[in-house]
Design a protein around this nucleic acid. Structure first.
Lengths: 141, 141
DNA sequence: CCTTTACCTCAAGCCGGCTTGAAGTGGCAT
DNA sequence: ATGCCACTTCAAGCCGGCTTGAGGTAAAGG
């Protein structure tokens, strides 16, 4: 079985060919050569795409991902940096948990003024942390 | 104390005036009138901004937020919809937890091939869920 | 050998959430 | 009454992460 070309990788991974080209340009993946004009990829490509997906799931930009994992998948990581990100992620998770509760509260209680419910306002405060007066970090989509 | 104008609200909330105008245009907040040309806001504005922040924290778009909370802050919610969102958020949270663990794993273990670690690949799979072959939902910024 | 077809490059476009800049107007202090 | 300065509108721009389209080329099949 010869090395997969871009179409093969796209079919297999679900990542569109255009995106694969874009990723290569960005340096988050790499092709191991060409067959004629067409890119062919090494067997590690699926791993690497999984790592990219991991990074994206964690809210990292493609640039950050390129920086964290060499395009061959080897981590070139500053431990501390990744750990910092993990901690940030934990804060995000807590925020989302508060958000979730707050949403459920809103859904459950049809009262026009949730604001009078102290537990709701507390959740709101946590959920909104980072917006009202403070840092503006990427996180999110 | 007369109703706050846009500058006052901006100062107080930390949300830039340009953003407040943008929000009003989008229908996620509303001003209660003008003093001369300048917008003035009702006392509920801070609540409303908190709700907007809540929505954003939950990964909702401004359009969705406008749809969920009337610009005066009253929820005009289809319960089921919000609950569905809460459930979605829970899935997101689980994904982020897996992501966090996976990142910590990568940081902790300098081995070039994490891929041989079954627990890592399991985390990867969860973290990347939604990427490789499946839906693409917002989450993120 | 020739056609088809799937890839190639490069530039431009799209979306969301804002920000920025030019040009205008009105509130407030002197 | 006058001037300043902060607000106003409107259009355009920016960023990230892609997608789309025009125009070109080569590998595989008849």
């Amino acid at each position: 079985m010869r090395p997969p070309d871009i179409a093969e990788v796209a079919r297999h991974s679900g990542v569109p060919a255009s995106t694969l080209r874009y990723y290569e340009e960005k340096g988050v993946i790499e092709s191991i050569g060409r067959r004629g004009a067409r890119r062919i990829f090494g067997p590690g490509i699926y791993q690497q795409l999984a790592l990219v997906a991991l990074g994206q799931a964690g809210g990292f930009s493609l640039d950050e991902i390129a920086e964290m994992f060499a395009p061959d998948g080897r981590p070139r990581i500053e431990r501390a940096k990744v750990e910092a990100r993990a901690r940030e992620l934990e804060r995000t998770i807590r925020r989302l948990q508060a958000t979730r509760k707050a949403l459920l509260h809103v859904a459950a209680c049809p009262a026009p003024s949730h604001m009078e419910c102290p537990s709701f306002t507390r959740m709101l405060k946590i959920a909104a942390a980072g917006r009202l007066k403070s840092e503006r970090r990427s996180r999110g989509r």
